[in-house]
């Protein structure tokens, strides 16, 4: 059994600003990383693809709306349908995934109308962790039926302890029902290195690493 290096693609739009943080976080875990420009359409060599945080296309019209029509996001549907790897949207990436209907529901303006930039206390798979949040449109909204499905299929792996933005059911992070896609509003990639004063983000990347290894094992790649 040979060790398989995890191949990571990090998508960059005009206005993305967390691409480098995401790259450094992935490299901390020994993953290989490539930046992917938004007009790229072939993603199949990647075990995991990140839509990092930022303000893609200036958040014009609303957050994530225009990014949804870029060639790379169109190609993501194919990547997901083939169940090739994991797709992870952080912050603006989560907004794009919802706009592209790859995750259910939508993210709208925070309850208090402010851009919130602070450390948020969270429940991550029943453990208490703290992660930085930085968003103006982070209030998760979905209809009752969707919220029930999220609860019954345990898709909400991350919840706010003191809901800062008014999200339905305190939802801060979400798997899709097939467990291939993740949307997460807080920034785990900003809480990896001890110098930043917070290493709680490592738990999130460890969860992804375990999921990828599980997938590679089941497909006979390692």
């Amino acid at each position: 059994m040979k060790a398989q290096i995890i191949k990571t693609g990090i998508i960059v739009f005009p206005g993305t600003n967390c691409d480098l943080d995401t790259k450094r976080a992935c490299e901390f875990f020994g993953w290989e990383t490539d930046f992917i420009w938004h007009d790229e359409t072939s993603l199949n060599k990647y075990d995991v693809v990140f839509l990092p945080g930022g303000f893609s296309y200036g958040d014009y019209i609303r957050a994530g709306r225009l990014a949804r029509f870029s060639p790379v996001v169109m190609a993501l549907s194919d990547y997901v349908n083939k169940k090739r790897g994991f797709l992870i949207g952080i912050c603006n990436g989560f907004q794009i995934l919802c706009e592209a209907k790859l995750l259910p529901g939508i993210l709208s303006v925070n309850d208090n109308t402010k851009f919130i930039c602070e450390e948020a206390d969270l429940l991550f798979e029943n453990k208490e962790i703290t992660l930085p949040i930085a968003h103006g449109e982070g209030r998760y909204i979905a209809d009752e039926k969707t919220l029930q499905e999220i609860k019954s299929k345990k898709m909400d792996f991350l919840k706010y302890k003191n809901n800062p933005n008014g999200s339905a059911k305190d939802i801060a992070g979400l798997w899709d029902k097939e467990n291939n896609i993740i949307g997460i509003m807080p920034h785990p990639e900003r809480a990896i290195f001890a110098e930043t004063g917070n290493i709680d983000g490592r738990a999130f990347f460890e969860m992804i690493e375990a999921a990828i290894k599980g997938k590679l094992l089941s497909t006979g790649k390692i």
Binding site: G105, I141, D143
Partner: peptide, 8 residues
């Protein structure tokens, strides 16, 4: 498709 999102 572009200017609005029917969910919201």
């Amino acid at each position: 498709d572009v200017l609005s999102n029917p969910v919201l």
